[in-house]
Every structure is written in C-alpha cells, then in structure tokens.
Simulated scan of single mutants.
Amino acid sequence: MSEAARKVVVGSDGSALAEGVLDPLQTLLGSEEGARVYLLRTIAADAPEEQIEEARAALEQAARRHAAPRCEFEAHVRRGDAAEEILRFSQEVEADLIAMSSHGRRGVERFVRGSVAERVLRHAERPVLLLNPFALASWEGGVARVIVPLDGSERAEAILPLAQDFARRLSAELRVLHVSEPNDAPHRGIHRARIEATHAGLDAEGQPATLALREGGPAEAILDEVEQSEGGVLLAMTTHGLSGLERWAYGSVAEHVLRRCPAPLLVLRQR
C-alpha cells in the first residue's frame, strides 16, 4: 500500500448517504495529481441488464457532480455480493483506500455480523475510511485534528504513514495518543519510551505532532480524546490480531471505539 491515498474505491448502494462520502474525498484528493476515484455499485446476479445501465447512469451523474480538476472519477457496476466485489475490485485496481458510509449515528453501532461494511472491514487488505451521517456533518466543518492511538506495538504504528498523509492534506494537527492501563505497570515504561521515540521521529521527519498521554481504560480514553477535541476530528487506528475484526466479539478496544466513535474513522486491519 502506498503511503499516499491516490486510488480510492467507494462502495455505493445508490443512496444519498453513500454519495455523501464523495465530498470528503474531494477535500482529500482534489489537489492530488493523478488521483482516481472508482465508484462501485453491486447489484444482484440475476438483475436485468436495464438495471445495470440505470445504476451506471446514476453513478456517472454522481461523478459529474463531484468532479475535481486533478481527480478522475470512474463508474463501475458489477453483479454479485457487495462486500466480495468491493474487496475483489480493490485488489484488481490496487486501491490505496476503500471509502464507505455507515448508517449508524455514532460509529458502526448498527453494524450486524455479515453486513457489507462489517465484512469489508473484517477482510480488507487496505485501509478503510468509514463515515456515518454525524461524521459527514463534522467533516463539512473542517477536520482540525487527526488522532492516532498507539499502544507501543509495531502493528499499531502501521497506520501512521497514511494518517500523516491525511493530516498534511487536511492541514490538520497530527496527535499521537497513548493510554496506559492501570494493570500494565510492568510494561508502562517500555511502551511509553517507544511512543515518545515515535513522536520524536515525526518531528524529525518535518511533520510536527502533539503527544497526549492518558491513563485508564483505552477505549474510554480514546473516545474521550475525540469528544474533547475542538473542531472536526479524524480517528486513525489499526485492529490487532491474525483475524482482524473477529476479536470484536470479545470486547476488544477496537470494537468499543469503532462502535461508539462519532468521528470519521480510518481503519487498517493488521494480520
């Protein structure tokens, strides 16, 4: 995956909410030379050809409404399962990012096991940008801060290059967040030292970042950091474990944050 998102696949169901994702992408990609957005609509395998043409025409109209000088839009319609086609198409075009809308007011609280968005998040091999109605409204006011929760592991840091890229494009503050748990005293010093070294490395790369150190439950602290931030926020984080989101059912930090966060979410699944 490239450190910069230049090729983006947008999963669309034809709704106004799904099209709303294109406005944030204009902000992110509008000045990026060679940027390309693929609008992908999936319909039933047995749908008549007429329905395919109608879906393609609707996507092409959406593309024209959101045209940007340096960003090209392509409309694609496929037959089959929506999640499978989004994942397959993203691999075919070597996308840097998948962008989707969710219908919950906060985070992905209305996700159910087997839904399109949940399945894409579970299996995607590239980052996913997820926006719900609240997040879309927040983005319209401008994103002032990109928050990256780090736990001292190399896996958690995998999202940093893309978070840096988003912060640069949005002219937003990059904020590294580390939460020390009360029962993690034996490793607290090691984790904090790595976080501080990572933070110093960002400064050395010419992209200053702020550092927030908190104590308590990780999920609650992350959500509190989002809620207390002034201006719009983008939360960028990884999911851990060989099975990605399969650990959500066991109450992981990612589950609590992703289901309750009102901000736009940039998620990278780590194997």
Rank of each mutant, 00 (worst) to 15 (best):
S2C: 04
R6C: 07
S12H: 08
D13H: 05
S15F: 07
S31M: 11
G34W: 01
R36V: 11
R41F: 08
E49C: 10
I52S: 10
E54F: 13
E54N: 15
Q61A: 14
H66P: 04
P69F: 05
C71D: 01
E72Y: 04
E72T: 10
F73D: 01
V77L: 08
S90R: 00
E92N: 11
I98R: 01
I98E: 00
S102M: 08
R106H: 15
G107N: 07
V108M: 15
E109D: 15
G114A: 14
S115Y: 05
R119W: 07
A124L: 03
V128D: 06
L129I: 06
L129P: 11
N132M: 10
P133Q: 04
A135H: 05
A135P: 13
A137K: 11
S138L: 14
W139I: 07
G141C: 05
V143K: 02
A144R: 11
A144S: 10
P149H: 04
D151P: 09
G152M: 01
A156C: 04
I159G: 03
F166M: 11
R168E: 05
E173V: 04
V179Y: 00
S180A: 08
P182S: 08
P186A: 06
P186E: 01
H187A: 13
G189F: 04
R192T: 09
E196L: 03
H199K: 01
H199P: 04
G206I: 02
P208K: 10
P208H: 10
A209M: 09
A219V: 11
E220V: 14
I222V: 15
L223P: 15
E225K: 12
E230T: 13
L235M: 11
L242S: 09
L242T: 13
E246I: 01
W248H: 03
G251W: 03
H256C: 03
V257G: 05
L258G: 06
R259T: 06
P262G: 05
